[in-house]
Nucleic acid binder design. Structure first.
Lengths: 183, 183
DNA sequence: ACAAATATACCTACTAATAGGTAGGTAAAC
DNA sequence: GTTTACCTACCTATTAGTAGGTATATTTGT
């Protein structure tokens, strides 16, 4: 992996573990054994770095959508929720959860990028739920987007709160979401 | 209101709007037209301030419990969820949501206080749900604590995500939680 | 093929601003 | 005369960010 990608990966992990305003360029430069100025060579500002991180997640989302496109709706949702479980086990929460918490400390440009990632995620979830409902896999009685909102906010909140209570609570909630859908 | 309480209130608002690691003592001192050192007179460290803020919320929770103790379970839940709506409209999220996001940047002492506030909130919600379920108001088929977890994480996530999407999404989710309970 | 030009990927050394925090003083109230 | 509620003046560490240098590749012109 090249230095640029390493910086993005480390920044991503730091944001999702400690939050945007709790990490500095020196956290990254120390870890990579390079100097502070070298990070500015790749990313002139911290804003430029967080935008690159969001854009990486936009690409990851597209790859995810592509990867699960042939699966049935139930498997799509299970895979989607699995993405959140994996990183949770290492103390990290999702990028959406972490960044929306710091939303008011961002420039308009970062806010716009975050909106795009959020809407892309929400739209995929809405479409997948609709598909599964029409095929008789899922059962709920409300707008598809509303159900998508409930699921995603439940996951974000669960990632957050289970830091304080118990990591196992996260898995309990995740199972409950799936059971509620296919009941 | 005395200066100490004003500092706590301002710190509380700043944490819930921008996050713990995005506010400084000077944000407070400028607003109150006092000097930085005067805040240290009341709170020797930033840690001491955040602990005082958590303890204020512990007291507020007790007052809330007392205030709604005579109401029926449905009204208790509606009032509980209203607390989250009120501050949300001013851009602030709940103290639980904001602080659990910064959990790994806190000292053990702050983490412990946050755990107490979280558990006290969760326990009240669990008991209230159980009461309402036994009296036939609420309908769900899982442990009471699990249902409490789902509700509270859903609200925390909704506060967060609706910053990015649309404030009205928060109210949609809140209504869905109530409808789901009494359906 | 070979030298010159240029781009890459860092570096040293610095800056201004801000962070949380401290030492010690003072004026007024109790 | 002690406590309260501030103050001035400072400190050290860290922050994001900049200016300009250098060694090593890579590309280009002859």
């Amino acid at each position: 992996m090249n230095t640029r990608d390493k910086i993005i990966l480390l920044g991503d992990n730091l944001i999702r573990k400690r939050g945007y305003n709790a990490f500095s360029f020196s956290d990254i430069s120390k870890e990579l054994n390079i100097k502070n100025a070298s990070i500015h060579y790749y990313f002139p500002t911290k804003t430029a770095l967080v935008i690159a991180i969001i854009q990486k997640h936009l690409i990851l989302l597209e790859k995810f959508k592509e990867k699960v496109s042939e699966k049935d709706s139930v498997q799509k949702i299970i895979k989607f929720l699995s993405v959140y479980s994996i990183t949770k086990s290492e103390g990290r929460i999702s990028i959406l959860g972490s960044l929306s918490n710091d939303y008011f400390t961002f420039t308009a440009e970062v806010q716009t990028e975050l909106k795009i990632l959020t809407n892309n995620t929400l739209n995929w979830l809405t479409d997948t739920l609709k598909e599964g409902r029409q095929q008789g896999f899922f059962h709920y009685d409300m707008e598809d987007r509303k159900k998508a909102l409930i699921i995603i906010t439940n996951i974000l909140g669960a990632e957050q709160l289970s830091r304080v209570t118990d990591n196992y609570d996260f898995h309990k909630i995740k199972e409950a979401i799936i059971n509620d859908l296919i009941k």
